[in-house]
Design a binder for these strands. Structure first.
Lengths: 232, 232
DNA sequence: CAGTAATGAAACAAATACTAATCATTGATG
DNA sequence: CATCAATGATTAGTATTTGTTTCATTACTG
C-alpha cells in the first residue's frame, strides 16, 4: 500500500483526503505543521508528499526546497503542491522548487487521485533503474535498504548508508567535503570539524576498504573523496 | 556558461576575478558602482552576484536589501558578499540581509570559486551538465575534476590540475612564470624560487611529456611556458 | 666553441591535508 | 532517567603535496 504524507494545516481537509485515498489503496498521514511533517517524513518514508503552499512556520515552497536539498535522502520523493490559487504555479512545477505537480485549491478529490497516480507512475519508472545497484562486489538494494559486500549483509548506520548511495549514484565523481555534508544534511550544514572524514573512515572500515589501494572510496588529496566505479 | 556579476569598485580585483572565473567556465562582469551594477543586473540576469560591502554611493548591505526587496524579480538570485574583515559576518549570511554566503578579504581565488560552486549548486541542483575539453588526446572533465590521457585517468594534485586547466584555457599562449604563479596562487604571490619550474616538471612527468619535442607543454626559452593547442 | 644564463629535475624541507583513535554530545529506547 | 547507539568534535600521528635549493644539462651569445 502506498504511503502518502500530507502536510497541511487544514485538519478537515486532511481527514477527508485520508478517507478518500483509502479507497484507492493509499494510506494517508496528515501533519498539521511543517515540523511535524519533517518528523513523519523521516519516520514513514512515504511514497509521495502532498504539500500545502500556505502553512504556519514556513511555507510550502521553503519545505519543498529543503527536501530537494537533501537530495540523497528524499531527492526522489515525488511532491505534489496544493496552491491556494492558480496564479503562482509557474514557479512551482519542475522548476527551481522541484515539485512534480501542483493542484490549485479547491479541487475534486478524483482529480487529486488522478494526479497522484500520474506522479507515482512517473517516479516509479525511473526508480526501477536505481533500485538495485551492483558495483564491484558491492550490492545495494535500496528498496530494502540493504547492502551486501561479497554476499554478506553489512550493518550500516543511516549516515553511512546515505553516504554510500550518494557515492554510488555518481561513481567516479569527486565530492568535496562541503558537498557531501550539504547533500547529507541539507542546505545550511556548516562544518568545522572532520566529521566527513570520520564518516568516510567508518564506512571504509565496514566496507573493508582500508588498504592503500582502495577498492571503493578513494581519497582525492586536497579535494575530497571519490567512489570508484566499474573497473574496465 | 554561468554569468556572474561583480559589484566592486576595485577595478584590478575585478579584472583578476574575471580572468580567474573564466577558467571555471564562468563569465564575469564587473560594475564599479552600484548604479552601474543595477543596470547590468537587469540587463544580464546573472546567475550569481558578488557584492563588495564597501562601495561608493551605497554600501553592499543596502544593495543586498534592495535586491531582496524586489523579491519577485531577483528573489532567488544568489548573493555572495565580500567583506573587508571577518567581523561583521553574522549580520550577513542568511539573516535579514539575505546573502547566501560571505567571504572576507583578502581571499584565495580558489576559495571564491569553491564558494560560488557551492552556492550555485544549492540554488539550482544542476551540475549534471558536464563540460569536457579535449585537446590532442588529453581530456578534462571539469565537473568530475578528472583528467584522462589517452583514456587513462591521471592522478593529479591540486596545483597540477589547476595549472593544466589554466594552460588548456589558453592554448598556444605563452605564460611567464610570474603570470602562472599569480594566477595559481592569488593576487600578489611572491616567488623567490623555481616553484613554477618544479610544478611544470611534475606535471610533464605525469603527462608523459618529457621528450625534447613535447606533446603538451613547450618551454619558451627566456620567457615561460606554452601549452600546445590542436595540431592541424 | 667557450662562457653565461636558463632550465630540468632530484633531494630535501616546510606546509598542508588526511586517518583514525578517542572523547563528547545527541537522541532514541525502554 | 539510565543506557546505548549514532554522530560530531578534537587531536596526535602520518602521509602527501608544495616550495626551496642545488647541480647537471641545455640553449643562447658573441
Amino acid at each position: 500500500m502506498k504511503q502518502i504524507l500530507i502536510i497541511d494545516d487544514d485538519e478537515k481537509l486532511g481527514q477527508l483526503l485520508t478517507q478518500y485515498l483509502e479507497r484507492y489503496d493509499m494510506q494517508a498521514h496528515v501533519a498539521l505543521t511543517p515540523s511535524k511533517g519533517f518528523e513523519l517524513l523521516k519516520k514513514l518514508k512515504p511514497d509521495l508528499l502532498i504539500l500545502d503552499v500556505m502553512l504556519p512556520e514556513k511555507d510550502g515552497f521553503e519545505i519543498c526546497r529543503e527536501i530537494r536539498a537533501k537530495s540523497s535522502i528524499f531527492g526522489q520523493l515525488p511532491i505534489l503542491m496544493l496552491t491556494a490559487h492558480a496564479e503562482v504555479t509557474d514557479r512551482i512545477v519542475g522548476l527551481e522548487l522541484g515539485a512534480d505537480d501542483y493542484l490549485p485549491k479547491p479541487f475534486e478529490p478524483r482529480e487529486l487521485v488522478a494526479r497522484i497516480h500520474n506522479i507515482l507512475r512517473r517516479s516509479s519508472d525511473d526508480n526501477n533503474l536505481r533500485d538495485i545497484k551492483n558495483i564491484n562486489g558491492l550490492e545495494v538494494d535500496s528498496s530494502r535498504r540493504e547492502v551486501k559486500l561479497d554476499s554478506e549483509v553489512l550493518d550500516l548506520t543511516t549516515m553511512e548508508y546515505e553516504l554510500l548511495i550518494l557515492f554510488m549514484q555518481f561513481p567516479n565523481k569527486t565530492f568535496t567535503r562541503d558537498e557531501l555534508m550539504n547533500r547529507l544534511r541539507g542546505i545550511d550544514a556548516e562544518l568545522f570539524s572532520r566529521a566527513v572524514d570520520t564518516l568516510v573512515s567508518r564506512l571504509r572500515h565496514k566496507l573493508n576498504d582500508t588498504s592503500k589501494t582502495p577498492r571503493f572510496i578513494k581519497t582525492v588529496w586536497g579535494r575530497g573523496y571519490t567512489f570508484i566505479g566499474e573497473q574496465i
